[in-house]
Design a protein around this nucleic acid. Structure first.
Lengths: 205, 205
DNA sequence: GGATATACTATACAAATGTATAGTATATGT
DNA sequence: ACATATACTATACATTTGTATAGTATATCC
């Protein structure tokens, strides 16, 4: 077998690295030492361990000692999800994320949308179709109390949560549909509660 | 403590059940016995175990014996992901899912889109904007060689992968943009390769 | 009171997984 | 030839996590 400069991974080590990488991508978690051994036909788990140690030494892998499935590849996100409640309804009086109003949960890759607190909402109506938001789409909403002029937000009017482009004009709130057949509506600021900003759309077709 | 009819979970058992449920929803995996014990301040892991056993007996939980983090709640999907390659380009000559052409990976909840083999593709151009598909959107594509008349598909023409509504007319293939400013284009069937059907859209805003 | 279910502790064992010791063998550079 | 790095086996130990044994205590029903 070829001797290679220390610092450079060998072909064998690289194939172990590739296996681990693919495992993380496909399964979301790194393999166990014995899973690596099984894949390569090693009789001893140590064989896999030594390759892993070498890869750690050479900087391709990181490891949390004694933790299970705790290999990390820099630049490769591990499976980290954000779970957002999919709200079935929004009630004016109740706390926004009351669990009784959660219809389902949407799990999405944490890297996809940057949200700490948020929720998902199924879009009803065609009012935003020219913004590419259709009836039945799932809006990913970042929870916030205010919104920049012209951004698309979720606002509560009475007992109805609706997705619109939001403008502020002289103490009034203007909700502008993105649909030629519909007109903007103006409300007193105190009648409108901003629930959040739409940061993403998921559509099943 | 109240004695309750066998078959009915006690308040304490229900709170353990709720903790497990939330853990699965939030983290994607059930807690370990000791994590349950720690959360409730139990000094012995058996305390948690007994609650779990009772919940299993009463039908609220299912369990795979001796497996780690192997609790299941019926009607609650565990964290199962599909990983789709996000193709950076599509080359006419090469296999579709050549790893050199994979720009990134999109992990999505398996329950969200029903796909076995598929890929993701970043949409370029405005040709489908009236179908609510915008430039920069990520199209979730189910890989298939044919497509029903009028469905939205990803097709390869020369070296360019494009998203269009696909029609078949007398041995010809018609690709219809969803944009009033653009006209349908007709191709010989042999010049067009169907890569798949668009089953979903993800938009980051 | 006695039976039963609940709710817990202290401790230990079992299985899965990470790690280590000791050893064999091969290839390469000096 | 020798040192060194690589690549592996057989075996055992360490840590984590699921499970079990033995025991204490309380509440409810008969």
């Amino acid at each position: 077998m070829a001797t290679i400069k220390p610092g450079q991974p060998t072909a064998r080590q690289l194939s172990v690295f590739e296996f681990i990488k693919k495992h993380i991508i496909k399964k979301g978690v790194p393999p166990t030492v014995r899973e690596v051994a099984a894949h390569f036909g090693f009789a001893s788990p140590l064989s896999a361990q030594l390759h892993i140690n070498a890869l750690v030494k050479k900087g391709l892998l990181k490891k949390l000692p004694f933790k299970q499935r705790a290999l990390e590849i820099s630049g490769l996100r591990p499976a980290e999800d954000t779970t957002l409640p999919l709200l079935g309804r929004v009630r004016a009086g109740a706390p926004l994320l009351a669990s009784e109003d959660t219809e389902d949960h949407i799990r999405i890759d944490k890297g996809l949308f940057k949200i700490e607190d948020g929720f998902a909402l199924r879009v009803t109506g065609d009012s935003m179709m020219e913004a590419g938001i259709f009836e039945g789409d799932i809006a990913i909403v970042k929870q916030q109390q205010t919104i920049e002029n012209g951004e698309i937000g979720v606002v509560l009017i009475g007992d109805e949560a609706t997705v619109k482009r939001v403008f502020r004009q002289k103490g009034k709130i203007v909700l502008k549909p993105e649909n030629k057949t519909m007109k903007p509506a103006t409300y007193n600021a105190e009648d409108v509660r901003v629930l959040g900003k739409v940061v993403g759309i998921i559509r099943k077709m």
